[in-house]
Design a protein around this nucleic acid. Sequence first.
DNA 1: ATGTAGGATC
Length: 480
Amino acid sequence: MTREGVRPNGFTYSIILTAQPAVSPFQVHAHIIKTNYEKSFSVGTALLNAYVKKGILDEAAKVFELIDEKDIVAWSAMLAGYAQIGDTEGAVKIYRQLTSEGVKPNEFTFSSVINACTAPSAAVEQGKQFHACSIKAKLNNALCVSSALVTMYSKKGNIESASEVFKRQRKRDLVSWNSMICGYAQHGHTKKALEVFKEMRRQDLEFDGITFIGVITACTHAGLVDEGQQYFDIMVNEHHIYPTMEHYSCMVDLYSRAGMLEKAMDIINRMPFAASATVWRTVLAACRVHRNIDLGKLAGEKLISLQPHDSAIYVLLSNMYAATGHWQERARVRKLMNDRKVKKEAGYSWIEVKNKTYSFLAGDISHPQSNQIYSKLEELSTRLKDAGYKPDTSYVLQDIDDEHKEAILSQHSERLAIAFGLVATPAGAPLQIVKNLRVCGDCHTVIKLISKLERRDIVVRDTNRFHHFKEGLCSCGDYW
DNA sequence: ATGTAGGATC
């Protein structure tokens, strides 16, 4: 077109920027600058969105700034960019700017800003506030807003509100149903997840691959191995949905978590893809739990070759060697880690108290109320022991004496966060904790006891799922 | 004729 001397206009750029597979936004950007289309809101929005899809957010923000008259579509596109990278503060800032300039948010705006509130570090209250705003704007019933709300509430640990939003929906589409199934699945509310699925069947609705990811995950979290396999078969044979890598990952997780590692390997060997890092990670984690050192070694080495800079892999592998007393192997992995300058990700826990988020590292003493936190932990320690608790030091994988191990356990980040929650909130108030790693077995035992001793409902979200602790028991039934 | 949205396993 340009060779024949036809000048592109705004439509040309918008169309080419949304073409699939995506073209390089940098290249088109150059043409846009040359022909002076940077200020156009439609071209600018398409361009910034192209940068967002590539994850280049600062470039997207620069493009956004240059748009002359930013309409709600341009604002929403920028907001969606921040939401996509999980930058809650950036998204909230954009929302405030657009409303203060008198621009009226639409359903896309709310859907994105609520989506931005699903980030682990975002305060639960934040999402709730945008829910309220969407009600005021009469946009809360839009499909994309409702499903964003269901996902936000369930990811923030509030499955009751998620299901409330879902129940009140008069109109639903596939995404609405999938959001609810996946929410229940992540909370380990297997029965409810399957009930929602059954309701879809009763109404003769269409499913897609994501529906079954939710359903199989629900089975995984309850150890329903046969049922999980049945749903996979139904998906393939009755609904002719072609399983993706993600489905095979779920199946490998289903079997390996239940300790059926041979069956898991069978799937890996027979699936039509090379196993992804996710698959091997699942296997490795299960090998650590079920103490299968040979397979763990295989999975660990595969993983290290696939992702040589992922610290979590080295940690899992070295922990497995430590847990089985293979100290030489453990030293080898640690050395590899040092040689490659791979640093372990620190374990963090967050707790929200009065709309503020507090974060804790293991052994953290930086909090202003540190003294109170540690004396609460002391007090709890005595009461826990009276209640029959014995620390399980096998979760401490340093080669040190038992007394030190107990001290390390007692200062895990989730315990500090809970102790702070106990002293900083009124008696009986529920606590919500978020953790960036998996909760350890000993902490799991302790939190169950604390929920009983202190009469508190405690919800812990780790990297895998939610644990609802209540009256000495956990919703996961000790299977996670 | 063009630009913005929600649901996925580790």
